[in-house]
Simulated scan of single mutants.
Amino acid sequence: MNQSPRRTLVVVLPFALACAAVVTTYAALRDRLPDPLATHFPASGRADGFSGAGSFVGVAVALLAVQGAVFAVLAHRTSRSLGSLRPLIACAYGESGLLGYAFPATLFANADVPDAADVRFPMWQLAVALACALPAGAVGWLLAGADARSADRPAGEPHRLPLGKGEVASWTRTVTSRVLLAVGAALVGAGAILAFAVNPGSGLPMTIMGVISVLLSACRVTVDRRGLTVTPPVVRRPRLRVPLGRIEEATSRPVDAFGDFGGWGYRIRAGRSGLVMRSGDALCLRLTTGKEFVVTVDDARTAAALLNTLVDRGAGRPADAS
């Protein structure tokens, strides 16, 4: 089987099973459920939010389908081996295991209760849901298999950008992560569905996470006499700066977001870290600490050449860690 369809099938499978569990449970309990259902429970376990039985099942299936689609797209877009996607697959299986228990458990809690206001959902149910998520994630990890990918691709040769005496230069590019943008949009949409189908407060956390993801789905990368600066294009914070005094050498090389760093966003691996917005060309800095810092951005070779020139000239060395 071609690797890409196999990756997609392995990632989608747990969400399909969770959807089947929700639909099967609803079909079995349909005649024993009150209408509306109790669907939201605070720490006391006493119901304080309600929705129609059909709408609850529809929202549950929609949330599982959307999450399955997002994970499937992430798995499909990379050309790396299935083993290199272990963190993604384990997360997908853990998430589907948690929701695949929580949604049917909510239906069972409502069964044979005449008034939904009398439904109780004790907090130990959440512990059971987490207990289901952990082995499900382990199954995903095992199904992914070992990472058989080759060693990281070596960085290119360091280059210099010729500058005359007293001449100054700067370089800037904006890079957008379609993955983070899609995840943010999906979270906002899911939060809106929850707010409409259950109650406004239930969808607020997911909506906030989605908005943050959208705001941080792009960054502006700048190289100048101060070193390397990365900021969001819409808001000024958070800002990341690597001053020239911390840089030994700059090069460029292709980077695979999942294969090399296990995902998107700010990533930390053994001996290296980076802001990985997408797969492709990346600016790679060898720091004075011996570690590596990576930023994925177009035209990284020019950025590396300018940084090397500025480092050689000894320009802009104040220890600005802002």
Rank of each mutant, 00 (worst) to 15 (best):
A90Y: 10
A90E: 08
A90L: 13
C91D: 08
C91I: 14
C91A: 15
Y93N: 15
G94R: 09
E95N: 11
E95G: 12
E95F: 11
S96L: 04
G97S: 01
G97E: 05
G97W: 00
G97D: 03
G97P: 01
G97I: 02
L98D: 02
L98E: 03
L99W: 04
L99A: 10
L99N: 08
G100I: 00
G100F: 00
Y101C: 01
Y101T: 04
A102C: 02
F103Y: 07
F103R: 03
P104E: 00
A105Y: 00
T106S: 05
T106V: 07
L107T: 07
A109M: 03
A109S: 10
A109I: 07
N110F: 04
N110R: 02
A111P: 05
A111N: 07
V113W: 11
P114I: 12
P114T: 12
D115Q: 14
D115V: 15
A117Q: 13
A117D: 12
D118F: 06
D118V: 09
D118G: 11
D118I: 08
V119D: 12
R120K: 13
R120W: 05
R120G: 10
R120S: 14
R120C: 11
R120Y: 09
F121V: 08
F121C: 03
F121T: 04
P122V: 07
P122M: 02
P122T: 06
M123Y: 02
M123L: 08
M123H: 07
L126A: 06
L126Y: 06
L126Q: 07
V128W: 00
L130R: 01
C132Y: 01
A133H: 03
P135Y: 06
P135A: 10
A136E: 11
G137A: 05
A138F: 15
A138H: 10
V139F: 15
G140V: 14
W141D: 12
